[in-house]
């Protein structure tokens, strides 16, 4: 009997490599969100008096955390995994050992999720010194961010199973990821959007992450949190199953 713990071993390989380069890797991951925090949160935000009863930077912070989770796990899940799948053929090599393709996929998903979460924790730690993190409520918020990282890791895995080359990820980033971060309530409330845009925003998963994290951090949790989380979980599960099916078919050539 060979345990189906292969996903953990795939995760271990990535963690092993990450340990060698973690300081540099995390520095660059955390730097970009912090620049946004400075320029948008504090810079532009200083001209805004009141956002739904909060300062702009307090309003913006949950959006920043969610976008970070999304960006980091999506990038890790696309560029790095696509390279392993195609140019390096690492997945085909792992398959030589007693590991099935689904274990490889789960391991990689777990890793890009981990990396997304590490990015978020990095940003949260630095923000702590700005006084943006001042309550235990960051802990339940991190669970939502974990879910967000998982969701976008799965989305990335589906992407790479269809991608023909690296350009696909550029299109996905400028055509989907960045626009999503603009209309999902990161910088302004979704309610101010025209109705058609509002529907689009709510169909996309990021808005539900941001809503959830904002609810938790501003201590205004209500029953709708369950709906938001349920939506995130369902989308993640669908994307995960989809990616497993695609990658498995591809690896058993």
């Amino acid at each position: 009997m060979i345990w189906r713990d292969g996903f953990f071993r795939v995760w271990q390989r990535n963690f092993f490599y990450f340990r060698k380069t973690w300081s540099v890797s995390l520095f660059w991951i955390v730097l970009e969100p912090l620049m946004y925090l400075g320029a948008i949160g504090y810079g532009l935000g200083s001209f805004v008096n009141n956002m739904e009863g909060q300062s702009f930077v307090d309003f913006y912070f949950p959006g920043l955390l969610c976008s970070t989770a999304m960006m980091v796990s999506f990038f890790e899940g696309t560029y790095s995994n696509y390279t392993k799948l195609t140019y390096q053929k690492l997945y085909s090599i792992i398959m030589i050992a007693p590991l099935n393709p689904d274990e490889i996929v789960y391991g990689e998903l777990l890793w890009s999720t981990t990396k997304g979460l590490l990015g978020v924790i990095g940003v949260a730690l630095v923000s702590f010194f700005f006084g943006l993190v001042d309550s235990w409520r960051i802990l339940p918020a991190l669970l939502v961010l974990l879910l967000t990282s998982w969701l976008f890791s799965c989305a990335a895995m589906v992407m790479i199973s269809y991608a023909k080359n690296y350009d696909s990820f550029i299109f996905a980033t400028s055509g989907l990821i960045v626009p999503m971060s603009l209309i999902s309530g990161t910088y302004f409330p979704i309610e101010t959007l025209p109705t058609a845009m509002k529907i689009v925003a709510y169909a996309l998963p990021l808005s539900h992450s941001i809503h959830s994290v904002r609810m938790i951090l501003s201590d205004s949790v209500n029953w709708t949190l369950g709906l938001h989380l349920g939506y995130l979980i369902i989308v993640s599960l669908v994307l995960m199953k989809w990616s497993v099916r695609r990658i498995t078919a591809r690896l058993y050539s």
Binding site: W3, R9, R13, F16, K89, L99
Partner: peptide, 27 residues
């Protein structure tokens, strides 16, 4: 044991690490 046509070595790792990581896949 398998030696495929494309060596498929893990270029992020050293020689020994390649073997160690693969041993880990083999439990």
């Amino acid at each position: 044991g398998v030696v495929p046509q494309d060596d498929g070595l893990d270029v992020d790792l050293t020689v020994q690490e390649n073997l160690l990581i693969f041993a880990n896949y083999h439990r």
